[in-house]
């Protein structure tokens, strides 16, 4: 994988020395053992993985071994990690984040396989921080390349697979491209937010489309409100919508000019399969191609440094 091009090195910065010191310290820790896999190597997971990858080779399950490329799968943290065990890499990435290198893109991944992992074996990962290079100017912005190695051991101390992984942590460019550390022009059309609606906007900023649901009777409601009009409950929850929808109605705004917007633009009422409607822009689609009934999928657009809006893009190729 190659996502960025290392370039010339800019002038010295005291912060660079701090980062280099930290990187040296973490590298000196050597290989640090992580938490063993939650489950031993097992047939159901192998079957799902082969299915997802479209790999029809019957040899793995027939011989009771896992595809080598599954190495990472056995020790993944899952969506909601419990009691995360830190690795030597974490402190380096956190330090980069704190210095504004918030963007991340994986640039290299090389795996080495020693032998097949067998059904019933429980793998344990071990991580070694290999090094930090930078700062570099790249097409994405200024950043550092961080490299580490992971080795998976079977029940004894026998290595099964190894992986070298490298990411670029970079400072995202601003839209204008003038001031790397500057903020974007504030988008003028801001929503009012209060305790009844904050969950929606928090969700949007994390790339989730949240629909209020009543914690008692389960009814969905959008736009949200403080109470459930059906059962009077003030105990509110939300569901995360699938993100698919259908254009129920739409307009193409031409006139008068709207602050923060370039005309013409499309606004639609989108009907969600969850049973509620929501308003948003239809983007990445010429206005003349929008129609009632158009299948759309949610997409999230940062309007400035603080506000993300849920918007909609056609689901089918046009």
């Amino acid at each position: 994988m190659t996502g960025a091009t290392p370039g010339a090195t800019p002038g010295p910065d005291p912060a660079d020395d701090e980062l280099r010191e930290l990187a040296a310290k973490q590298a000196a820790l050597g290989e640090v053992r992580g938490t063993p896999a939650a489950d031993p190597v097992n047939a159901p997971m192998i079957r799902h993985w082969l299915d997802a990858m479209g790999d029809a080779n019957p040899a793995y399950l027939d011989r009771g071994v896992a595809p080598p490329a599954m190495a990472q799968v056995w020790t993944m943290q899952g969506v909601r990690p419990r009691g995360k065990v830190s690795t030597p890499v974490d402190d380096v990435l956190a330090a980069l984040e704190a210095r504004g290198y918030t963007g991340v893109v994986a640039t290299n991944c090389e795996q080495t396989y020693h032998r097949y992992a067998r059904l019933g074996e429980r793998l344990t990962p071990a991580t070694r921080f290999a090094g930090l290079a930078g700062p570099k100017r790249t097409a994405l912005g200024e950043g550092y390349f961080a490299t580490w190695n992971v080795t998976w051991y079977a029940d004894g101390d026998e290595p099964v697979a190894e992986m070298m992984f490298r990411v670029l942590k970079f400072r995202p460019r601003t839209r204008t491209g003038t001031a790397p550390a500057g903020r974007r022009e504030p988008y003028p059309l801001r929503p009012a937010v209060n305790g009844d609606t904050a969950f929606f906007w928090e969700g949007v900023s994390r790339g989730e489309l949240r629909v209020q649901s009543c914690a008692d009777c389960g009814r969905l409601r959008h736009p949200p409100g403080p109470l459930c009009p059906h059962c009077r409950s003030a105990d509110r929850s939300y569901v995360t919508a699938s993100g698919e929808g259908t254009v129920y109605s739409y307009v193409v705004h031409h006139h008068p000019p709207v602050p923060g917007r370039r005309t013409p633009f499309v606004v639609a009422v989108v009907e969600l399969p969850e049973g509620v409607r929501i308003v948003g822009n239809v983007v990445d689609c010429p206005p003349e191609d929008v129609r009632v009934g158009l299948p759309v999928r949610v997409t999230y657009r940062a309007m400035d440094d603080d506000l993300v809006l849920p918007q909609w893009t056609p689901r089918e190729p046009r």
């Binding site: 988008y187 059309l189 929503p191 307009v251 923060g260 633009f265 606004v267 308003v279 822009n281 918007q311």
Partner: peptide
């Protein structure tokens, strides 16, 4: 606020 941010105003 469910409409104005999208320029529907």
């Amino acid at each position: 606020s469910w409409h104005v941010p999208f320029g529907l105003m």
